[in-house]
Design a protein around this nucleic acid. Structure first.
Lengths: 148, 148
DNA sequence: ATGACTGCAAAGCCTTTGCACGCAA
DNA sequence: TTGCGTGCAAAGGCTTTGCAGTCAT
């Protein structure tokens, strides 16, 4: 994941927000920039900790609000990273994305991608009377470390 | 999904619980029998409503405790059916299972299954240094009704 | 008799909402 | 100036836990 890709997403996100009629507020922009620095799912509380450490002066509520708006606009994908905890990941304009294997013992997330898996999902989606916008695949089990 | 399949799961579940050292308590058995009647994901609160209507005399806490024990024993698969809401589905001993398309407008769940998708997931799992036990695929978008 | 099991109520935890103030447009 | 955007604190909603009584073994 290159720096250019991250910047591209941030620019794309800010432009989309503006086009949707959102004002260029301070908190939301800070959240977008923070998301641009992560390549795998982050939770709202992760961002809250991070921004607090950076003394960004962004309230927790604003983080949740920004995440929801970004998700609605198709800029973020929301996945469950732990029981009742949501994680958010950038949706790249070019469609590039990965899925996750999550360790049920330590919670570690291992990202993976596979073209034939994507093709299989596309084929299934195409056969259904359903307007598919996103999809997610989660493999659960034990990671290398915990299985030992 | 045949009645035989449901009964088979219930028997298998009760036997597994007993083998794991659990006592044949009343509440847990009622939860197992309730789960046997559902072919797609049900939430803890759904079960609570259902059992209350049937005057089963099972407390909400016992439902949550039973669901967690059954999940730990590999008898149930836990999936997220709405923001922060968990749904549970039987894991059939023969491995038969389906996945879900979930409408982001009305929340409807449309089950689907696809052999080539399963093969693709198995191939990916096999290549990873990860002890894969379960997997889930979720397609999100708009259902036929809401897309219109 | 012993310790698991259960129901009730209270507590937890992530997330959302109400409200008054501040700031973009 | 208008009303969207924000931070803080309080409220919500699902889930988990503490506890004392009950029941399986």
């Amino acid at each position: 994941m290159s720096t250019a890709t991250r910047t591209r997403w941030a620019d794309h996100a800010l432009a989309t927000l503006q086009a949707a009629g959102y004002r260029r507020g301070g908190a939301r922009t800070v959240v977008v920039e923070a998301l641009a620095r992560h390549d795998c799912a982050v939770t709202a509380l992760d961002l809250d900790d991070e921004l607090r450490r950076r003394k960004a002066g962004v309230g927790r509520a604003s983080i949740y609000r920004a995440l929801e708006q970004l998700e609605q606009l198709g800029l973020l994908r929301r996945i469950e990273v732990a029981r009742g905890v949501a994680g958010y990941e950038r949706i790249e304009p070019d469609g590039e994305h990965h899925h996750h294997a999550i360790c049920r013992d330590c919670g570690r997330m291992i990202p993976f991608e596979d073209a034939s898996l994507e093709r299989a999902i596309d084929r299934v989606s195409g056969r259904m009377s359903f307007d598919a916008a996103e999809h997610e695949v989660t493999i659960r089990g034990r990671c290398e470390r915990c299985a030992a």
